[in-house]
Simulated scan of single mutants.
Amino acid sequence: MATWLHRTPTGVRLAIRLNPNAARNDLGPLERRADGSWHLKARVTTAPEGGRANAALMKLLAKTFRLPVSKISVASGATNRNKQIDIEGDPEALHTLFNNWIKDRFP
């Protein structure tokens, strides 16, 4: 199930499916794609215009995981709902942080 989260040399990469124009800002749960891979669902209230939904997603991730927004970037999928998000930092610590969050929130 961990295909949504990958270690990189500079941190971790998250597979996220973003739903803009949602009723609330929220993360989770994990969902399985048709190809068998997994992604983390994310919802933001912001419209997908001019990169505002991506910015809202990065702020949501930063707030949820108490990380600096400057360490979060869109690696791919800037204009697509399916995104790869890079988060800079210690790969092992970040991997543990995200895995523990999923286990605690969605047992």
Rank of each mutant, 00 (worst) to 15 (best):
A15L: 09
R24S: 11
N21Q: 14
K41S: 14
F65E: 00
K83W: 12
S73I: 00
A22K: 06
K103R: 14
H95M: 09
N19G: 02
E49P: 00
N21A: 07
A22E: 05
R7N: 04
I85P: 01
R52E: 13
T45D: 00
L27N: 07
E88W: 06
L5C: 10
L30V: 12
H6Q: 13
I85C: 01
H6D: 13
A93W: 08
P107F: 03
A56D: 07
P9D: 12
K41Y: 03
L30T: 09
G77F: 10
A2I: 10
R66E: 14
L97S: 02
W4N: 05
S70H: 11
F98E: 00
L61W: 05
P68I: 13
L67C: 07
W38Y: 15
H39W: 13
G50C: 10
H39C: 15
R81C: 01
R17Y: 12
R105E: 07
E31P: 00
E49K: 15
T8G: 02
K103C: 02
L97P: 00
E88R: 14
I72P: 01
N21K: 13
T45M: 15
R105Y: 00
G50R: 09
A15G: 08
T45S: 11
R32L: 02
A93V: 14
Q84N: 12
R32V: 13
A75C: 09
L18F: 06
H6I: 09
V69L: 09
A62V: 02
S73A: 14
I87Q: 02
W4Q: 05
K71N: 10
K71G: 05
L14E: 05
G89R: 04
Q84T: 08
R33V: 03
L57Y: 01
P48I: 10
V69K: 15
H39F: 15
K59N: 12
T3F: 05
A2F: 14
G36I: 11
I72M: 09
N19L: 10
T45C: 13
S70C: 03
S70P: 01
V12N: 01
A42W: 07
P91I: 05
L60M: 03
S73R: 15
F65H: 12
S70M: 09
P107W: 07
V74G: 06
E49G: 03
A62D: 06
N19E: 08
D90G: 10
P9K: 11
T10K: 14
V74R: 09
L5W: 05
G89E: 11
E88V: 14
D104W: 06
D104C: 01
A42N: 06
R52G: 06
I87V: 13
W4V: 04
E88N: 07
V74T: 14
K63L: 09
K59Y: 12
D86A: 11
K63F: 08
R17D: 11
